[in-house]
């Protein structure tokens, strides 16, 4: 059997594909951001990006959203994962229910929460029926950015906690139950077992989940589009506007570089802060 060449042959299509459609395009987009159509290096697209009146808002809202959404998701997914782990009956069905949002697109998630928050939506209907308000309120109007922000936070937490949950459940599954028993024998209560066994041993999974989730948070787009339209500018929305509406692919590329930059910074941050020494891993 042509064993020496075989592994490379099998790997070839995937490698070529990723080089051509993943690495090369990233070089291309960087070139777009830094060079004119004539191939002259320039920073003018970045200047254009920064000087745009929406730039600061888009950057702030994007970072703020990640800052609010991700910690809630960490707490919630840890709670769900530990609940699942101590479940005896019904574990499968509960897990299925909790992972449903994994299959739902961000646009659909935005529409789902639109059904709740819009003027004739369910939230208004409930508030009205129970007599808390006298007439429907405008939650998602342009005057009330705070409310749009809250709706986006809820929609994001609702939609994207499942991905962290799945990673954490898989991670908890790797922790041998003898560790919990030993901790129990030596006096750790439920909370102490969580902080002294689960959390430290889950650190690699938590790291993966955080890296993945924060990058996705920086890509927030369709949820915002569905709930706030252009009232709540975010970076990805600006990329879309530049590219699609304004046909200004250079500035779009500059925005893309910015998203890439904050993604890389956050990845490096989590790689460093949540690193596990090899000898201390499971």
């Amino acid at each position: 059997m042509q064993s020496r060449a075989l592994p490379y042959l099998l790997l070839l299509p995937a490698t070529l594909f990723l080089l051509l459609f993943f690495l090369y395009p990233f070089v291309l987009v960087a070139w777009q951001a830094f060079a004119t159509d004539e191939g002259v290096l320039t920073t003018k697209y970045f200047d254009k990006m920064i000087s745009h009146w929406k730039f600061e808002k888009a950057l702030t809202y994007t970072l703020l959203l990640a800052l609010v959404v991700v910690p809630i998701q960490v707490a919630l997914s840890l709670l769900m994962a530990t609940l699942v782990a101590s479940m005896k009956k019904g574990r499968d069905i509960i897990l299925y229910i909790w992972t449903i949002p994994l299959g739902i697109s961000d646009l659909a998630a935005g529409l789902i929460w639109l059904a709740i928050f819009e003027q004739t939506g369910f939230l208004n209907s409930i508030l009205f029926s129970t007599g808390i308000i006298d007439e429907p309120m405008t939650f998602l109007g342009y005057q009330d950015k705070g409310m749009i922000f809250l709706a986006v936070v809820l929609a994001e937490v609702w939609r994207a906690t499942a991905i962290m949950l799945v990673i954490l459940v898989a991670g908890i599954g790797l922790i041998p139950k003898e560790y919990y028993e030993a901790a129990q024998v030596y006096g750790a209560n439920t909370w102490q077992r969580f902080t002294k066994i689960t959390l430290p041993l889950l650190k690699p999974s938590l790291q993966t989940a955080l890296i993945l989730r924060v990058i996705l948070a920086f890509e927030v787009f369709a949820v915002v589009a569905a709930l706030g339209g252009t009232n709540l500018p975010v970076l990805m929305g600006e990329v879309y506007n530049r590219q699609f509406e304004l046909q200004d692919s250079h500035t779009a590329a500059a925005f893309a570089m910015l998203i890439l930059l904050i993604s890389i910074i956050s990845t490096v941050f989590f790689m460093w802060t949540l690193r596990t020494p090899k000898e201390a891993s499971l």
Binding site: P176, E178, Y179, E181, A182, A183, Q184, V185, Y186, G187, A188, N189, K196, I197, P200, L201, K203, T276, A280, S281, L282
Partner: peptide
Amino acid sequence: PPKDRGISMVFQNYAVFPHLTVYENIAFG
């Protein structure tokens, strides 16, 4: 609960916590 029984236990797979040093393992209880 186990902690109030005045026992300690040695497990078949030892259950030596991987994220703690030997010192902290022994000191755990």
